[in-house]
């Protein structure tokens, strides 16, 4: 790698390396997009032409549509519960945590510290042998999803709440607002960004969750990631890519919302 003596940041070699790594990161997503509009069955070089037939296939696929709908609804429900849990836990840890704030924070993030697969195993055994739900309960799956998504809401809300200027709440109090009014008129509106970006992340995490869901979802509870997983293992038909586009689109929307609301740079674990 060539370095000029002044600032090695601007050397050409460095730029090429960076570019290559960014391309590496983007590669599979780009391929999915290309494949989904590829005329041929297999992705070959040279490309075979443009076609939207795979999207048509997707639109006609009963299975994909059902599982997609199920995943959306599950993610929506899980996100709702996660947001509720995330907000009250963030508020209580930041405001009332006191000396135990660090430990409480760790406790709230603990579901993400364990491997998803193993949490899935633990929950499976738990559901079968302790609760008796087995893999047939929607609630079981829902709670599992809430478990792994609410830490994201907690993280986003608690970060913003931590930097919240308490003087704003005190000013509201001196103007006669009681605790409830202050919460509703001042605190919540000003922490909207954290709540929304946390919710967005929680939704995507639930929507794309696989290892845990695979273990816990019974036959009638197949989610989209599960369906797609099965599909791509046994067929190379690019319909799967058309389905994948939805995920990519969702991811871009989520990233865009987060950037607009809180700025991606502020994300810290």
């Amino acid at each position: 790698m060539k370095h000029n003596t002044r600032r090695h940041k601007t050397s050409v070699g460095y730029k090429i390396v960076l570019g290559a790594i960014y391309m590496f990161i983007l590669a599979p997503q780009i391929i999915i997009v290309l494949v989904s509009v590829n005329a041929g069955q297999y992705l070959t070089f040279p490309p075979q032409g443009f076609s939207i037939k795979w999207f048509v296939e997707f639109a006609h696929s009963e299975v994909f549509l059902t599982t997609m709908r199920r995943s959306f609804i599950l993610a929506a429900c899980a996100t709702t519960v996660s947001v509720a849990l995330g907000i009250i836990s963030a508020y209580s840890v930041v405001r009332f945590g006191g000396r135990f704030r660090k430990q409480l924070r760790l406790f709230m993030l603990s579901p993400r510290l364990f491997p998803a697969v193993i949490t899935g195993v633990a929950l499976l055994i738990f559901y079968y042998r302790v609760i008796g739900w087995g893999t047939t309960s929607y609630w079981g799956l829902l709670f599992a999803h809430v478990l792994v998504s609410f830490p994201y809401v907690f993280l986003a809300v608690s970060s913003q709440l931590y930097n919240f200027d308490l003087a704003l709440e005190e000013a509201a109090r001196t103007l006669g607002a009681n605790k409830l009014r202050t919460l509703v008129k001042v605190t919540l509106p000003l922490n909207k960004a954290g709540i929304i970006s946390g919710a967005v992340f929680a939704f995507v995490v639930s929507y794309t969750e696989l290892p845990m869901t695979m273990l816990l979802a019974g036959r009638n509870l197949t989610t989209l990631p599960m369906q797609l997983y099965d599909y791509i293992r046994w067929s190379f038909d690019p319909t799967g890519a058309a389905v994948g586009i939805v995920n990519i689109f969702l991811a871009l929307v989520a990233v865009w919302i987060t950037e607009k609301l809180v700025g991606l740079e502020t994300l810290r674990w």
């Binding site: 990161i25 983007l26 599979p28 997503q29 999915i32 992340f201 995507v204 929507y207 794309t208 696989l210 990631p225 797609l228 997983y229 791509i232 994948g244 995920n247 990519i248 969702l250 991811a251 871009l252 989520a254 990233v255």
Partner: peptide, 9 residues
């Protein structure tokens, strides 16, 4: 964004 796309995709 790849993080949010999902491991399967």
């Amino acid at each position: 964004s790849p993080l949010l796309v999902g491991a399967v995709v």
